[in-house]
């Protein structure tokens, strides 16, 4: 019960902090002071109090988009175990449900973007759905590998099953898996090298351009939803890459939060040292991730 409450609190409170840490890291690399770590919280509160501008072209789909996206991402966040603690909702086959919830969220973001009739947003929507369709097979290969390790179809089980012993036993496979999932994490959350979350008006960007016309509370929902999605996929990554447990529940929560912040720093470092790759190269990189995780599965078959 305590774990469930902490899980809910963590999902609700922590995600914007990750964004702040990423921005802070990038600022440190650039030699700037940077915005405070809590900047996204201030932004969200500010946006919630603002009015909204709607395009005359839009219909109810545009208003429903952020709502459905946020709801789907929040439900998805209840399926993923945080640290060594089982998720509040877990059932056999929930990993499929998880992937499809993210799909639903993406679907609604994309049609809300197309609702504005802007060619920029149409372009962003096309790229978002196209790239994610290459990322999903990679995720499923990774899930099959993990399911085979833990003999289970629930996210809570397959992710908490990974321990340092598993790493020692199947190190090569795990290493490939971690690489693949890190690529998926960056692609799905539209980070560099796939997308640049800072640019709003260039032809190379994906996610940011889809939400150009959203404003006020709707934009707050979108920013928050994006942060939660980063948190959820980040938790997925941390569970596999950093499988340490002390046995003490509260201490484990501390380790988990620290690991998440570490991940945010890592993403910040990646964004600072890498350039965005060309759009046509993105599918190749994602197919590469698929091959990595398929290879991880093959190594498990021995």
């Amino acid at each position: 019960m305590t774990d469930t409450i902490i899980h809910l609190l963590a999902v609700i409170i922590v995600p914007p902090l990750l964004m702040g840490v990423i921005v802070k890291t990038k600022a440190a690399f650039a030699g700037r002071a940077g915005a405070p770590c809590f900047q996204l919280y201030y932004d969200l509160f500010k946006l919630m109090r603002k009015g909204t501008v709607f395009s005359e072209t839009t219909t109810w789909v545009f208003r429903a988009g952020p709502v459905v996206t946020l709801a789907a991402v929040l439900v998805a966040s209840l399926l993923v175990p945080l640290g060594r603690h089982a998720a509040p909702i877990s059932f056999s086959g929930d990993l499929v449900f998880f992937v499809y919830l993210l799909g639903l969220a993406r679907f609604f973001t994309a049609i809300a973007a197309l609702d504005t009739g802007s060619s920029f947003e149409g372009m962003g929507a096309a790229r978002e759905v196209t790239f994610s369709c290459f990322a999903e097979p990679a995720l499923f290969f990774a899930f099959i590998t993990l399911a085979r390790l833990s003999n289970s179809l629930t996210l809570s089980r397959i992710l908490t099953h990974v321990t340092p012993d598993v790493w020692l036993a199947a190190g090569a496979s795990m290493l490939l898996l971690v690489g693949a999932i890190f690529i998926i994490l960056l692609a799905e959350n539209c980070r560099i090298p796939f997308d640049d979350p800072n640019t709003h008006l260039e032809l190379t960007m994906i996610h940011e351009v889809m939400v150009l016309d959203h404003s006020g509370p709707a934009f707050a929902m979108i920013l928050y939803g994006a942060a939660v999605k980063l948190f959820v996929l980040g938790a997925l990554f941390v569970n596999i890459a950093f499988p340490f447990s002390t046995g003490n529940s509260i201490l484990d929560w501390g380790i988990f939060i620290a690991a998440m912040l570490g991940l945010a720093v890592a993403i910040g470092v990646v964004e600072s040292v890498m350039a965005r790759i060309r759009i046509v190269r993105i599918p190749q990189l994602l197919v590469g991730a698929t091959i990595l995780s398929a290879f991880a599965m093959l190594l498990m078959l021995r």
Partner: peptide, 17 residues
């Protein structure tokens, strides 16, 4: 499973379009 995921992804593109 990954194949269905690919099909599902392209289906999403098709129907968003």
């Amino acid at each position: 499973a990954p194949l269905l995921a690919l099909v599902g992804g392209v289906a999403a593109i098709t129907f968003v379009k």
